[in-house]
Design a protein around this nucleic acid. Structure first.
Length: 726
DNA sequence: CGAAAGGCTCTTTTT
DNA sequence: GAGCCTTTCG
């Protein structure tokens, strides 16, 4: 047991040993937080003899939960598995599967993701004769989600409604909940809110959970919302051994209703709480820590910490600038090649971080050109692909035919002659009777309606579809999951349908990848495998797929990077409008969050940080000139090296230099590079024109040319037969 | 009804 | 630049 405490500093030791009552651990970046949590659990189990069954540990991602479980090597595997560990959403889903029926939730419920939620909002709006083009369904959904995060039922929300928009959202919210109910579905917020509802309405259920969980721990507490806080208050209510760990400076999810007040007010809610500060950083060099501190120091909403490190000074933070995002990416790829070449860092030790997902594209292209291995952290993007979602929709319908959103997705995919008109009529009819669409089809197919709603042809089509789904449903109880999966792919004609598409092979690959995911569940009994698979899919997070294996550069958003660390970190897009993001400009609170985001990024690094910016950046088609990020100016010169300050002239000079550089792996045809903006040219087919712009692309030159007769064209100069005209 | 083509909006971040 | 929706034609 001494080994559990050995190697910990006094603050860490205190955090591990304080197991009675409420505890707030304020853990700066790199302060050994994860270590403290795992040691604390080990300590509880091994030293204090607390049964793992009585411990709950809430993590921010599934990956964090899995890793923690692995790190609990002091404990036997089976003991580690007995600990309730996972994200709030996963834990709540488990609770509702077991006890949800007490508040009227069917155990077979499906979980709606963002995509499904938007579709559902649209349906709700259409049903209310509201135009989804007038009010963005996304904005409405946002309001609904906010309401749910404050545990406001539609009626409560409507009462509060002040503006016209809020009144509208209230009505949509009401209908939205009705649709969820008929679809036997819960959205992400429901998982949390309805668990609270369960506990509040059914004291006996709450009692049983309270009796079980003598010790509750919550990681990343700064990113919890009010419902989540309420949840842990309830669950830990009997024993009050609640330990929350977090860092207000790393709170970056307010847009998801995370509420900084949770952590700032914890001591008020629990006056007897013990607060422990972990202030020694073991991760970063002194320089990196100083730079990060300089950035965060400008925030007003803070709980002050005195971070320090005994690590060496280390290299200065490298500042770099590029003309545009392509050049920025090239700089990053080039620099990584140098680092790897010098043996300074392996590819797997390097991460490139950015504010928006769209920024990954240019970086990927550069890495492809350089032949640099990389992995893009975007696991859920895979599940967002059409073909993947379609197959999932079939699987969901099999488990839960009431799922209208999934049904609408696939009722005519692949096309089977059930058109828009039919679907509209069907859905209106179902709504008028307050039954699900599938239930309506069922009645048609079984001839349960008094008078025929559709012509014989349509009725036949619908009843064929019904027969097929019924067949699947019967098989799902008998067949192993993979067999069922294959049956669905074949019987629906999905395979041929994809094969016939232009990019069919890729899409088929994706479906096969999904099959690979299903394989993990294949050993479960037929009745259990499908629900388990669907729940697994619904609750994955992006970083969950991030594997340690393979030597590759990690491309990751700043949000996803929270909780991770890398020896070398690049942050790309250090520009006004990107980081800080333009949407935060008019709101000081949001601006502070951008600052925290920057802070999180810098503090991920152990040895080296590069902050890179582009002078010009293409966004949503058009190209903008961006000023350097204000955060760069907060880092003292003494900590940095590289380009500064930025002047337009310098950028232009730099640009010229880079243009003169040959591409790294391909020789650009000298003749091609001689064509430049303003040159008059002649094309064999398009006739005469003028070059508007020319820039290098993958060892080639791409030119935008305005032709006299045929208008503006984009051409690759190696292919296009362009002749210079004097 | 279905395929193809053109026009439109959107992108912050995600369990 | 891309996915989604609408329009148009067969």
């Amino acid at each position: 047991m001494t080994d559990i405490l050995s190697g910990l500093n006094p603050a860490q030791k205190e955090a591990v040993e304080t197991i009675q009552g409420p505890v707030l651990i304020l853990a700066g970046p790199g302060s050994g937080k994860t270590r403290v949590i795992t040691h604390r659990i080990s300590y509880l189990a091994k030293v204090c003899g607390v049964s793992p069954r009585h411990i709950m540990a809430v993590t921010f991602t599934n990956k964090a939960a899995k890793e923690m479980q692995e790190r609990l090597s002091v404990l036997a595997q089976s003991a580690a598995r007995d600990i309730t560990m996972g994200t709030f959403h996963a834990i709540c889903a488990r609770i509702l599967r077991i006890d949800g029926k007490t508040i009227g939730i069917d155990t077979g419920f499906v979980i709606y993701d963002q995509d499904d939620q938007v579709s559902l909002v649209k349906r709700a709006m259409l049903a209310l004769n509201l135009d989804p083009k007038q009010h963005s369904p996304n904005a409405v959904l946002n309001q609904i989600s906010q309401a749910k995060s404050q545990m406001l039922a539609p009626a409560d929300y409507i009462k509060l409604g002040r503006s016209y928009f809020e009144e509208l959202c209230g009505r949509v919210y009401e209908r939205y909940q009705e649709l969820l109910k008929t679809s036997n579905a819960l959205d992400f917020d429901d998982l949390l809110m309805r668990t609270v509802e369960l506990f509040r309405k059914h004291k006996d259920v709450l009692d049983s959970y309270q009796a079980r969980y003598t010790h509750v721990m919550v990681d990343e507490f700064q990113d919890t919302n009010l419902v989540q806080y309420e949840l842990v208050k309830l669950i830990s209510g009997k024993y009050r051994n609640l330990c929350v760990v977090g860092d207000p400076d790393q709170s970056i999810y307010s847009w998801r209703s995370a509420d900084l007040r949770n952590i700032l007010n914890f001591e008020k809610d629990y006056p007897d709480a013990k607060t422990i500060m972990l202030e020694q950083n073991y991760r970063s060099t002194k320089t990196i820590l100083d730079a990060a501190s300089a950035v965060i120091a400008a925030n007003r909403q803070r709980k002050l910490k005195q971070l320090f490190t005994e690590n060496e000074q280390g290299a200065p933070v490298t500042l770099a600038e590029a003309y545009n995002e392509a050049e920025e990416a090239q700089f990053v790829a080039n620099e990584i090649e140098k680092l790897a070449g010098r043996g300074e860092a392996k590819l797997g030790e390097i991460a490139v971080m950015y504010r928006t997902n769209a920024q990954s594209r240019a970086l990927e292209e550069a890495f492809i050109r350089y032949g640099t291995a990389y992995r893009l952290v975007a696991g859920t993007r895979f599940y967002e692909r059409k073909e993947v979602k379609d197959v999932i929709a079939y699987l969901r319908i099999i488990q839960n035919p009431a799922d209208d959103i999934s049904l609408m997705r696939i009722i005519n995919v692949p096309t089977r002659g059930i058109g828009e008109r039919t679907i509209a009529d069907l859905s209106a009819w179902a709504r008028s009777r307050e039954i699900s669409i599938y239930a309506a089809i069922h009645e048609l197919a079984e001839n349960l309606t008094e008078k025929p709603l559709f012509n014989p042809r349509t009725t036949k089509l619908l009843s064929d579809f019904h027969g097929m789904i019924e067949e699947f449903r019967k098989q799902s109880a008998e067949l192993p999951l993979l067999k069922l999966f294959d049956r669905v792919i074949n019987r629906t004609g999905f395979q041929e349908y994809l094969a016939a598409m232009p990019d069919g092979e890729d899409r088929l690959d994706n479906v096969m990848e999904l099959r690979g995911v299903a394989q993990d569940y294949n050993d479960l009994p037929p009745g259990e495998a499908l629900p388990a698979l669907l729940e697994g899919i619904a609750l994955v997070s992006d970083v969950d797929g991030l594997s340690e294996s393979g030597d590759a550069v990690t491309l990751i958003t700043l949000h996803q990077a929270k909780g991770l660390e890398f020896p070398v970190v690049f942050i790309a897009g250090m520009e006004e409008g990107i980081l800080p993001h333009i949407r935060s400009f008019d709101d000081p609170a949001q601006m502070e969050e951008e600052r925290r985001l920057c802070y999180v990024g810098i503090t991920r690094a152990r040895r080296r940080v590069y902050l890179v910016r582009a002078f010009r950046r293409a966004m949503m088609g058009s190209s903008n000139v961006n000023a350097p990020s204000r955060f760069l100016k907060d880092i003292p010169d003494s900590l940095t090296s590289g380009a500064r300050p930025w002047k337009a002239e310098q950028v232009k000079l730099h640009r010229r230099e880079v243009e003169l550089q040959a591409e790294p792996d391909v020789d650009v045809n000298q003749e091609l590079t001689e064509l430049k903006a303003g040159d008059a040219v002649r094309h064999t087919k398009f006739g005469e024109g003028v070059i508007i712009s020319a820039h290098p692309v993958r060892g080639d030159m791409e030119a935008i040319v305005a032709f006299k007769d045929v208008g503006v064209k984009k051409l690759l100069l190696s292919f296009a037969k362009l002749e210079k005209v004097e």
